[in-house]
Design a binder for these strands. Structure first.
Lengths: 249, 249
DNA sequence: ACCTGAACACCGTTCAAGT
DNA sequence: ACCTGAACACCGTTCAAGT
């Protein structure tokens, strides 16, 4: 479902739209993935949404792969905008506050990704050096180095953060999380699943019984993604801080 | 390329193989992904490899999705076998050594995944609760809890580890890493790339110039995946240890 | 220059039919 | 019961042709 049909004025009958640009193609692709999921983003469906024939897309995009590159770029640019709007500006933050500044940037990036739950799986598969991704990471490197961390430690830090630097993490048991396809999220189907888990994973069940906010037999109680993300992030940031204090490692 | 054609005796002419089982289908799927990459694993190519018609696969596998579930299961079972062979056995390790025991298990899991570079991208997309994945994580939970960590801290720990618990991590700039498709790994194309990066990412370039073992203008010098994985893992494990010492948090 | 229709070489999968 | 061939509904993409 989309309002693209009527969102811009056009000459009466034919399907010709104002003028197609790469930017409009990418924006529509993002909108389509937002509303229908990444699986629904095909060259044909995207063209339909734009009131155009599939083959016309190839005038603005070299291939499906290039389309996904562009889509990733749009999302990361959105992150850069959000992060750039932070106060105080990164250059004005006292170097010693690198940890809080980094934390804030990463959580801001995450808040953008929460609006595009499909984005992590696209970002994961981009192998090239997208200019905006590089620029984002370069700013993080600058922040850490200005904070007094040696380049050696900064390098380790970037690896340790991994995709967390962009605000998402790999949660193997979190089908509803930022990386998951909403359509693929299974109904917890509590009764059977819990019985199975009690057999196969008694310790996990015991853990969840103690930890989960809800009773484990009512729903399985998906965990608080945001809180767990921050826990893991802080674990890493605190560790880095400790290493930095220990004489730039 | 595969030796499956002659790997088992068979009656002279026809394509009928000993007898097809789900296990044999899955084993061949893993072998195919190992040798040709995940992209080359299609129902048709797998059938061809087995000397069979594509539709016959549906007698042993409900769908492609089910095939991938099974393939993931094979890999995780391989991890469980490798981890089970560790000495001393997990139940016999002194509880206080939970950190080293956990570290060893995770690095063992990683060594298995290094033999199946495509496996992380399959594991990432499994949304169900695979019995073997659950069992593996249950053992980790038991290890941590026996080590004296509260279930609350163990729960945070599992989230913080994320996919790292199974031995892989999300490296956005590591196309050749465990998560990458070898076919998609780009030639570093040093000249242009470095020029571009010097513009877009001066701090990253400065960092790499200081850190990389090789000169940055000869090759970009991909980082030491194993060392960086261990750095990040230890950062998390040390942090957990500190929290545990601080009175089970 | 931009857009199109028909066609190609793939997918996963259904279905009725063979043994 | 297990396996098959033809066919269906999709993909991304090529190509020659339209304006």
């Amino acid at each position: 479902m989309s309002t693209s049909r009527t969102s811009t004025p056009q000459t009466a009958g034919a399907g010709a739209r104002s003028t197609l640009t790469r930017a409009r193609v990418l924006a529509e692709a993002v909108a389509l993935a937002d509303s229908e999921g990444l699986g629904a983003l095909t060259m044909r469906s995207l063209a339909r949404e734009l009131g155009i024939e599939a083959m016309s897309l190839y005038h603005h995009v070299a291939s499906k792969e290039d389309l996904l590159d562009g889509v990733a770029e749009v999302v990361v640019r959105e992150i850069l905008d959000a992060v750039g709007a932070l106060e105080p500006a990164p250059e004005d933050t006292p170097p010693a506050e690198w940890k809080h500044a980094l934390r804030r940037r990463i959580l801001t990036a995450r808040s953008v990704l929460l609006r595009h739950p499909w984005a992590p799986s696209v970002l994961e598969t981009r192998t090239g050096f997208s200019p905006y991704v590089v620029r984002y990471h370069d700013a993080l490197v600058a922040l850490l180095h200005r904070g007094g961390l040696s380049y050696d430690l900064v390098h380790h830090a970037m690896h340790a953060l991994g995709s967390r630097a962009l605000g998402f993490s790999q949660e193997l048991f979190d089908p509803g999380g930022p990386g998951g396809d909403p359509a693929a999220a299974p109904e917890p189907d509590d009764e059977d699943l819990l019985a199975r888990l009690t057999d196969e994973a008694p310790h996990i069940v015991a853990m969840l019984a103690e930890v989960a906010h809800v009773e484990p037999d009512s729903t399985l109680g998906w965990c608080d993604d945001q809180a767990e993300f921050e826990f893991g992030l802080d674990l890493i940031l605190d560790g880095l801080e400790r290493l930095a204090a220990r004489g730039s490692r």
